[in-house]
Design a binder for these strands. Structure first.
Lengths: 336, 336
DNA sequence: GCTCCTTCAGAATACGATTTCTATTATAGC
DNA sequence: GCTATAATAGAAATCGTATTCTGAAGGAGC
């Protein structure tokens, strides 16, 4: 069982090892008689080639790396990532690639991912999720010509391949919808200020306000970390305003829900007093009272495009366009 | 940059390639002068060894495989998996291992995981999540002596390493708590009947009933798929009973929440008319109304033990005991 | 019948590290 | 001063597959 290499197959089939390799690679330059003879032995013994040897010889591991850039704690509770991972695994599988997942905790991150996965040639390419607005790593990657795709946005370098959901458009859509529903004082609660998502959605929010001639009031904008407390206290602060906001665009379902929870706790009626809209349309939205209106991110599409771009890069093709936007959709429920 | 192999380092440092390897592996049999000379060049050029070559030569990929056995759709929304993945990645990283994630969709599954990951030697070992009660794959794995650890339970074979949260104990705890709170007609909604989790939790439920001398009534037991509709209709059926149940143990937060939602829809008051308890203590529990009492699964502990057992197996040590149980904890909230 | 292709399979090499084997030098012991 | 023994570094083999190089056999064309 341990002695199952091409050499053994070759011996048993009475051919050379090279022929076995050729048969398995589907090389047309091999006679049908030989082919059948080899395949019979291969099937009988259940031989499967050694991926390690193939990787070394072909200089390809057929392994994609997914690096999640948030701290593990944040990743832990978020169904977004399991959905993303599932979709990427599925898509990669179609092209006969596997997926290696890594997380970038702050300390280890700098070296861990870049050094460990790429320089060691452990993976053929990387999908990076949620990078900060200014990330030195990305420039290094880009300079060294290593295949990688961003999920999320990175402005400074045009040549960087990226896939993103239409955050600007989505926040515009959410804000526009609220305005058309008659809301006058719409607030925005973002995530950590360094993230591109936070900024993009803020921009969509602003643009929507402007397009309706509604003034943008910086007091109605707050930022929160990815945890319940932080979002709740951001909401609490917004409620101090006089008059208080009558609608909130949350950068995330969890943020929107935490905010909504805080508003309810303070006795506000939803959606009568304040309306809420979140992002991601996570399962959460269905279960809360009132159910949360949210912007759906088409995760499978995101995963599909990112994976396909990456594989193109790996295999030497130039994906066009380099920046792809996946449209978002508003899912109306009772909270707005 | 592409020409960065030990041979180049050796040439530049004026030593042999074997010496470079020895220095990098920390071999004590190498003079300090040489060592410094080599390290200087390594540092200057930022050389990192090629993992593919190392894998082939050492017969180790330093890659663990995680195979999630549910269909992708179910995985998609479930925060349990992102938490699990994050914890395993973190733990594996401590031992200098990486993680390769694969999902077992029904069709492809049989071959995909077994063949692709193991036989090809792509990974050094596997962590399998949520296998069915009778899984031929596991027997094959076990026979071939491949290192693998189960998260979940597998009865037929004693020698199989597994980590599980204390499902029987947890369901006992939930049921016991309900009985002590004065509930008389407690129902159980399980997941798919083939899963070990479903059966284990059912057993804990039964045992708790018996220990209080409460009769077990099979009409109060229902099974659902991992989706909202299925759980809701299971709940609907239970509500046809006369008298209807006054408490429900759901095998999963999502199942419990869907059931709770259905009960609310039918005008039952919670917890006055019916109490609910779920499993996993997912973020969902905090946001619903009333908040869901749930059994916490200590996911990091699960991940830590599974990863450590697997690495022991890979490195030739025999983990003891082979079956580890992670205790669960009841998180009391308003729903029960 | 001879040369020239074409077809196809085996031999040999390469991928980049690890490790065993071997050779050199220096040191110790007598 | 000579041999025995470390200590250490280089040479060479190895891991299992892919691929290039080489050669043999067979057919086509004259």
């Amino acid at each position: 069982m341990a002695e199952l290499k091409q050499v053994e197959i070759a011996r048993l089939a009475g051919v050379s090892q090279a022929t076995v390799s050729r048969v398995l690679k589907g090389d047309p330059q091999v006679n049908d008689t030989m082919r059948q003879r080899v395949l019979a032995v291969v099937r009988e013994l259940g031989y499967v080639p050694d991926a390690r040897a193939q990787s070394l010889r072909s200089q390809r591991t057929r392994l994609l790396g997914l690096v999640v850039h948030r701290a593990s704690e944040a990743l832990a509770g978020d169904p977004f990532f399991s959905a993303l991972i599932a979709s990427i695994v599925e898509q990669a599988g179609r092209h006969d690639y596997h997926l290696c997942v890594d997380t970038a905790r702050t300390a280890r991150s700098q070296r861990a991912i870049y050094e460990e996965l790429l320089r060691t040639r452990r993976v053929d390419g990387l999908i990076l999720v949620e990078s900060e607005t200014h990330d030195k790593r990305i420039e290094r990657l880009s300079c060294e010509g290593f295949p990688f795709v961003l999920i999320g946005r990175y402005e400074p370098i045009d040549a960087v391949c990226s896939v993103d959901n239409d955050n600007i458009g989505a926040a515009f859509m959410a804000t526009d919808y609220l305005i058309r529903s008659g809301r006058k004082r719409i607030a925005y609660i973002g995530g950590p200020a360094g993230l591109t998502v936070t900024r993009d959605r803020l921009q969509g929010y602003k643009t929507a306000l402007e397009s309706h001639g509604v003034g943008y009031d910086p007091h109605r904008v707050a930022f929160a970390e990815f945890n319940e407390r932080s979002a709740a206290s951001a909401m609490a602060e917004l409620l101090y305003l006089t008059p208080p906001p009558d609608a909130v665009v949350g950068m995330d379902d969890l943020i929107a829900l935490s905010a909504m929870r805080e508003a309810k706790r303070q006795g506000r009626r939803i959606p009568e007093d304040i309306a809420f809209i979140g992002f991601n349309d996570s399962p959460l939205c269905h279960y809360v009272e009132p159910r949360l209106t949210s912007i759906t991110v088409d995760i499978p599409a995101l995963a599909r495009r990112a994976t396909e771009m990456l594989i193109m890069l790996i295999e030497g093709h130039e994906p066009q366009p380099k920046r792809q936007i996946v449209p978002a959709r508003l899912v109306k429920r009772e909270s707005a």
